[in-house]
């Protein structure tokens, strides 16, 4: 079982990329599971065709200790297993602690042993803001981390912070930083800027996704690009990225 965490600045395109990777890899015959680790809980929206699935924390709140796996993991596009950790109402509670509780629940219910995915993606909110958001890269969860960035200053700044955090955790046997995914914003010299970041972080750019309107068009259909426009240039890009991710 390969477990991969996708990090990156807020709004940079993590969920779009993760969902397209899940869709593409499921088409290649892998059993894929995608876990959204973000209180917004919109990671698996396109895979679930717009149906909002109840989050792990919703279900714990509703059913207490009796939660079952069926109530928190749902089958989406092409059999991709979808789960959303969930989180508190904005402004109250503790989102980081929420991620921990959700992960412990999945573990306790034996999600990985029972569902036996070949691949698990953790789509993790923004930056590593507190202990809870580092949970997906702890020992026993993801082994590899990819960071989504554009050539914009703030996105690269966030990316290098995340790399520093991962490196700091190296002594604890956490996941390894495996490279950058460039989600283009069409800014000047974008590739060079991000290449420089890759060198500075001793990483590599493992894929480049162009900025393209088909992402929004697929979004409007509540689908991933891979599903909605399988023959488009963009779908090919996501599939290539999927191959590269599997090679790392």
């Amino acid at each position: 079982m390969k477990k991969i965490a996708i990090y990156g600045k807020g709004g940079i395109g993590k969920s779009t990329i993760t969902a397209n990777l899940s869709a593409a890899l499921s088409k290649k015959g892998y059993k894929v599971m995608q876990i959204g680790c973000d209180p917004k809980s919109d990671s698996t929206k396109a895979l679930m065709h717009g149906v909002k699935i109840p989050t792990v924390l919703d279900q714990i709140k509703k059913n207490g200790k009796k939660v079952t796996l069926k109530e928190i993991v749902f089958e989406g596009y092409n059999g991709v297993l979808c789960a959303e950790a969930g989180g508190p109402t904005p402004g109250i509670g503790c989102a980081g602690r929420g991620i921990i509780t959700a992960f412990e629940k999945l573990e306790e219910l034996g999600a990985y042993e029972i569902l036996k995915p070949d691949l698990v993606f953790y789509d993790v909110l923004g930056d590593v803001v507190c202990g809870g958001f580092a949970m997906p890269i702890r020992n026993g969860y993801a082994d590899q981390v990819f960071i989504v960035t554009s050539g914009e200053m703030m996105a690269m700044y966030a990316a290098s912070n995340i790399v520093a955090a991962i490196e700091g955790f190296g002594k604890r046997g956490y996941a390894k930083y495996c490279g950058l995914i460039l989600n283009s914003r069409d800014i000047e010299n974008e590739y060079e800027l991000v290449s420089k970041l890759a060198r500075e972080t001793k990483g590599q750019i493992i894929g480049v996704i162009p900025r393209n309107i088909s992402v929004q068009n697929a979004e409007r259909l509540n689908q991933t690009v891979v599903e909605a426009f399988p023959d488009s240039e963009m779908a090919i890009c996501y599939r290539d990225l999927a191959d590269k991710v599997m090679e790392v």
Partner: peptide, 17 residues
């Protein structure tokens, strides 16, 4: 527990040092 300290991770770090 509440702040999510990773006792296993901390242990690994101490053992390493």
């Amino acid at each position: 527990t509440i702040i999510g300290s990773d006792m296993n991770g901390i242990a690994q770090e101490i053992e390493g040092k």
